[in-house]
Design a protein around this nucleic acid. Structure first.
Lengths: 215, 215, 215, 215
DNA sequence: CATGAATGAGGTTTCATTCAT
DNA sequence: TATGAATGAAACCTCATTCAT
């Protein structure tokens, strides 16, 4: 069912003893810590193990190789963001378009800026090849929930829902990423959320057909 | 103005002889080729030299270290994109906002998709630490020319020009990057330019104050 | 008589309980299975324990280290072969030389080819250092019984019995090993036994003095 | 033309400078020395490099991995033995069977015992998997030259030449190996050559048909 | 100037073995 | 007694960089 490649990136064993759970969590957190404090190119398995307070061998009992470690970290991050978006979308079903936009943008930006350092670090992790598919998967899931939501807007319909959803999502991602990576004037940082609401709302209204034009 | 570190990343010598120019260009192209065919993590100085048909030693005569090589490659790419944007902006001075948006978007997307493979490869290079500032520099230059242009729009003024420019630029970048990295439905790929025009135009109109409301 | 080193390779305890016997046997069989399925260099104590359905810890209760495990396996194999030869030799006491040769060759080849895979695997185990003496011991035992047997031949005596026995045995071993290791034409595989009989019989007759030449 | 696997075991580059030749030879010799002084299981690439007086990196410039190093050593040994046999065979073309046997046995035993230590060490190397084919190749070459030679015997013909050659060769190998591995009485060591002549001669005569029985 | 052999620190990964539970 | 998590020394191998030729 699972390809060998995919398996190679999965965690190696499911810990049975309580001790293991602590260890596996410690390694996980240590990975993020090293990532933040040392940077991607100084993240070595030995350093991670040290920071986690375990031996390298122990690390390798739970993660078959370095990549699987990064996968796990990235995966959780993407899952959290995707879940934040999904939650916002569910809450906005049937709401007015304006409300939808505000809700989703807020959810997304909050998730991304909640732990800014982590977000920033993970851009580098994602760049480490073989992670492209993880990002794609997360995108797909987010696009799905966004589409579902938009379809229920009482005041707008979309001729090409996939395209509208894609533009909505990636229009949020672009400026957010730019802000996190540091190329933005301070004024933008503060107004990011508001500006994104304007951006996305303006776009969606432009591509939407009013649901009952006549009235 | 420049730190020693920054200097270490500059090319070692400015080639004056024809032979050198050929060599330096060969190494340059070889870097991109290796990047595309082998991926970031298999890009080694030896491999680049081999592909370029020179010895490692020669490579090191023009680039003091690996990073400077990547810097050079990334720098040229960013410069080209920035120049494309700058050119478009200059051509659109004094034009109507709609024309500005279309012109800049087209210029940007063309530059990015002109050599798609190269663009994709360079996202990975940029992720390699110490390159963040290069991206920031390019952004700044683009923001400057965009701001200049927008300031001349006959049919719109912007209360917060920096923010407007930033959002304009990063709103273009987001979807373009998503498309290049492969997570986009085919329909978007084809309509990218058009959609970006809609997105940016809609945004800018929303944040613009009409220049002479009275007339 | 036994050095401490030698002792270190003995099994740790003589199992008295039924449970232990089952365990010890399971580990034993698992070793051979892993050897065959994974090869010598992938034979790890953990893998053996897994295959045996016990924990590593348990394995180490019966075998103090990896070498002792391999020793045990090799030892049993050699013992079986030696016993087969010994049995054949005892049965051939007082028989004619021709009968002796056929009996011993048949016994040896049968023992070796009975589980061909196992035999092949064990050549690798034997190559693992410190096992040379085991092979030597087995050889000595076989030489002893062969000598005893040959001494009772009614139709031949041997001036140098040790040399004759040694050549007899190693002449059997050579081609058999070559066949098992796969470098033999198919025709040899089929005729191995017959050819060995010819080889050994021819040799022994050449070095034998007829028992009563005069009469 | 060459499979990737085969290539992985070849030497990595053909040295162009005189310096390289010295290095590559030093590494080669160091491998044998380490093999003899430390044994197979203590042969590490680092140790070999140390003994050769170069760095590990240098070693890896010429041999892509540890196996290729062992391959090279084993290959040379087998080639030498095969060549010794080939030479002996060529010299014995058209000679009487007795002369052939003596010539080949002498050539083989001399080659094997010329550097006993090396021979002994290489049995362990050969056991290291993936070398089986090398041994097989050497066997094939030897079988070919032996067959060619036997076919020219003026006083004997062989119904099944391949089988006869195989038995001849492996009958030499068996006792020789046993002697080298140390399980032989001293008397055999001294008489090995003579005994092998008897063994092989006796065998070949038994399976040969006289060329012109009548005359 | 060009070459490419040499360097060696440093990275990833394995696995025999121990010991607290 | 059985378990299996933890250990960590040690193995293999890479690659940016230097420097004698």
């Amino acid at each position: 069912m699972k390809t060998p490649v995919a398996n190679a990136l999965k965690s190696r064993k499911t810990p049975r003893q309580a001790r293991s759970l602590v260890t596996v969590e410690a390694v996980f957190e240590a990975t993020i810590q090293v990532l933040l404090s040392e940077g991607m190119h100084r993240l070595t398995t030995t350093r991670v193990a040290d920071r986690a307070g375990v031996s390298v061998g122990t690390l390798y009992q739970y993660y078959p190789n370095k990549q699987s470690l990064l996968y796990a970290v990235l995966e959780r991050h993407l899952r959290r963001v995707a879940e934040a978006v999904a939650l916002a979308c569910r809450q906005q079903h049937q709401q007015a378009l304006a409300s939808m936009v505000r809700g989703v943008v807020t959810g997304f930006v909050d998730a991304k800026t909640h732990d800014e350092e982590e977000s920033r670090a993970l851009y580098l992790v994602a760049a480490e090849l073989n992670a492209v598919d993880l990002v794609r998967d997360a995108s797909k899931r987010m696009l799905a929930v966004i589409s579902s939501m938009l379809a229920t807007a009482p005041d707008a319909t979309f001729v090409d829902l996939p395209v509208a959803s894609f533009m909505f999502l990636s229009a949020m991602v672009g400026p957010t990423r730019a802000v996190l990576e540091g190329g933005a004037p301070t004024t933008v940082r503060q107004a990011l959320c508001e500006q994104l609401v304007i951006l996305c709302d303006a776009y969606l209204r432009r591509v939407a057909s009013p649901r009952d034009a006549a009235v």
